[in-house]
Amino acid sequence: MKKAQIQMQETILVIFIVTVILIMGLIFFHKFQEKSILNEQNNYKITKLDNQLLTIPTQPELQCSKLSETENCIDITKLEAYKPRDLGKKIIKINIIYPEDTREWIIYNNPIGTNKLIRTSPISLYDPKTNKYFIGKLTVETYSI
């Protein structure tokens, strides 16, 4: 009887240990998957943000044009007239770098969240009132909770 009891206890102990190892393996696998998914999510956000940096200067709402021919620059008067709708949780701003000019435009301002991703890009700006070109910086800050 005692031998049987010992054997039973042995079996239970083995199953218990195997279960613990399995659970540990699952927890490790789950953490690994979670990290992998978070990385993918971050990479996607970065790619999307980079795309946005490229698309903003070529939008018909901002792009320069002369006699219906588009040019690779942002029209400052369009910038002042542009009122975008919902573009998500971000701040989009443009400022002039050269020649020296203190003008800055905040195209869109909706910073909701604590985590932020910032990307900048050089752009060409054109002022039709003075017929002058400038070098500017486009900054897009994307927020997430």
Binding site: Q33, Y44, T47, K48, N51, Q52, L54, T55, T58, T70
Partner: peptide, 26 residues
């Protein structure tokens, strides 16, 4: 099931990024 969802996410992501990129065409 999770892997299928991941695949679908990849497809949606590829589509989204590619369609967004088309807007940059000058």
């Amino acid at each position: 099931d999770l892997q299928n969802k991941k695949t679908e996410f990849h497809i949606a992501r590829n589509f989204d990024i590619n369609i967004e990129s088309l807007k940059t065409s000058t």
